[in-house]
Simulated scan of single mutants.
Amino acid sequence: MTDTSTLLALAKLARTLHEQDDPAGEDALLRSITDSAVELVPGTEYCGITLVEKGELTSVAPTDDIAARVDAIQHEQGEGPCLDAAWANQIVRVDDYDTEGRWPTFVDAVRSQTPVRSTLSFQLYRGDATMGALNLYAHNANAFTDESEEVGLAVATHASLALFAARRDEQFASALASRDTIGQAKGIVMERFDVDAVQAWELMRKLSQDANIKVAELARKLIDADHPTKRRDLLN
């Protein structure tokens, strides 16, 4: 049963993750997650996060070199508890690497290259092309308990919600920027070709199809061509 102090700490973590507004963006958020997992989840000594985006594996925000190395071994071997957690299972627990029979190549590498002897992995989130896992590591066998799973699942759930919100906000900001760029380019087309807004949009849409590029990218090229010096100044 999770004690009151841990529940209060989890509540504080939830507020911190959802209210975080750091210039470093997602990197700072991910590091807050791994640091909090080490602090809150019983048995945890090291922590890292694996992200799978468009088939590419990346290890982010490790708390130390040991977590980074275990994550890297999973990526190199293409097997391991974090990958199983990310792709299919919500929780994957390894009590003792000396007796673990799953992922034999990965297990041998962990035993020979790191001091880790038990792990606990949680699926962070899952979308159409993006998923991830929160990976907790310990020196000792049988370091993780049922309470570890309970608290770790709570941390992973809060982390998933915070990551989803952060990426949603980023996508919204990107969409607004694209809209402004397209509007500026449309104004250039209207002025140069003496057409109205509808005609300018249709012309841009046809050009994007003929060139096989997105309208937003076409808009940026039009702006660069019309105001190259001004755009460079804005970017610098």
Rank of each mutant, 00 (worst) to 15 (best):
M1A: 15
T4I: 14
L7P: 08
L8D: 14
A9V: 05
A14P: 07
E19K: 15
E19N: 14
Q20F: 09
Q20A: 14
A24L: 12
G25L: 01
S32I: 02
I33L: 02
I33K: 03
T34K: 03
A37G: 05
V38F: 07
L40G: 04
L40T: 05
V41H: 00
E53H: 13
K54Y: 09
G55T: 08
T58H: 10
A67E: 03
Q74D: 01
G78T: 07
G80Q: 03
C82R: 05
D84C: 09
A85W: 02
Q90A: 12
R93A: 08
T99A: 11
G101H: 11
D108C: 04
S112T: 10
P115A: 02
S118N: 00
S118K: 07
S118V: 02
F122M: 07
T130H: 14
T130C: 11
M131S: 13
G132N: 02
A133I: 06
L134R: 02
Y137W: 10
Y137N: 06
N140M: 09
N142K: 08
D146A: 08
E150L: 13
G152D: 01
R167D: 07
Q171E: 14
S174T: 15
A175P: 04
A175K: 03
L176I: 11
T181L: 15
G183M: 11
A185Y: 08
M190E: 04
R192F: 15
D194I: 10
Q199W: 05
A211W: 10
A211V: 03
V215E: 08
V215D: 03
I223H: 06
D224G: 12
D224N: 14
R232S: 14
D233L: 14
